[in-house]
């Protein structure tokens, strides 16, 4: 089956001539839809994740707008450091760009560059997480713990779930980097990078929604 048509532009095929030419184990798009099982599975999983974040965001919005008499502790909306979070959001957004650059590099069999961009993406993600840790600790220092009030529980749960997703993404990126170093990520398997990329972009998009709804739009 014409593997290359699906995974890489035609001119790349010639470049890959030095690889095993008819490698039956490369992701053969031998499927009814033409999408590989792995990619289709990732899309389905992400569809499911939409509902997960939908539920968490709904819970937060419900409780943010709730005016509770005698609420304990500060309101989460009074503590936001919008410039700081804007910067860390920008960092996360840029990591989507580097993710694309990494995919493009590996499809061109430019493995050095692919690894560089993979590592950059992971570092940008880690920067975002570091920012989140800083944000959480500063909130706690100002008296907003996880159990302080309704809003704080909802806020930490929502952003915490997102943070865990970014962290899992970083782990996957690092795994890809190591695989590439050990030569287990040839251009034929660029789809693996693409699939991790799908996840990474999804987590990014979710952050755009969270940043808009949670931080930017006032309660």
């Amino acid at each position: 089956m014409s593997v290359s048509e699906q995974t890489a532009p035609p001119e790349v095929v010639a470049d890959r001539a030095d690889h095993v030419p008819h490698d039956a184990a490369a992701p053969a798009h031998h499927t009814s839809t033409g999408l590989s099982n792995e990619k289709l599975g990732m899309w389905l999983f992400l569809g499911s994740e939409c509902l997960l974040f939908g539920g968490l965001i709904s819970a937060f919005l419900l409780y943010r707008s709730k005016d509770v008499e005698g609420m304990v502790g500060p309101a989460v909306g009074d503590l936001y450091d919008i410039p700081f979070t804007s910067v860390s959001s920008f960092v996360l957004l840029m990591s989507s760009l580097t993710m694309v650059l990494s995919l493009s590099a590996i499809q061109r069999a430019d493995h050095r560059r692919a690894r560089t961009w993979l590592l950059t993406t992971a570092m940008l993600g880690a920067t975002f997480i570091a920012g989140q840790v800083y944000e959480f600790t500063s909130f706690v220092r100002e008296g907003l713990g996880y159990t302080t009030n309704l809003q704080s529980s909802a806020f930490y749960t929502l952003t915490g779930f997102h943070g865990v997703h970014v962290t899992i993404g970083i782990l996957m990126l690092v795994s890809l980097f190591v695989m590439s170093l050990r030569g287990r990520l040839p251009a034929e398997r660029s789809e693996t990078v693409e699939i991790v990329g799908l996840y990474w972009h999804f987590v990014d998009i979710i952050w755009i929604i969270i940043f808009t709804l949670v931080y930017l739009i006032p309660a």
């Binding site: 997960l52 539920g55 509770v68 529980s153 749960t157």
Partner: peptide
């Protein structure tokens, strides 16, 4: 499944870690 997962997580955080999602005294709905 993800929707009930959210509900279960919120209840778990309430019960195990003292969150307030379903604590009516704290204003929960």
């Amino acid at each position: 499944i993800p929707v009930i997962t959210v509900a279960l997580f919120l209840l778990m955080f309430d019960r195990l870690y003292g969150a307030n999602f379903f604590v009516v005294e704290a204003g929960a709905d």
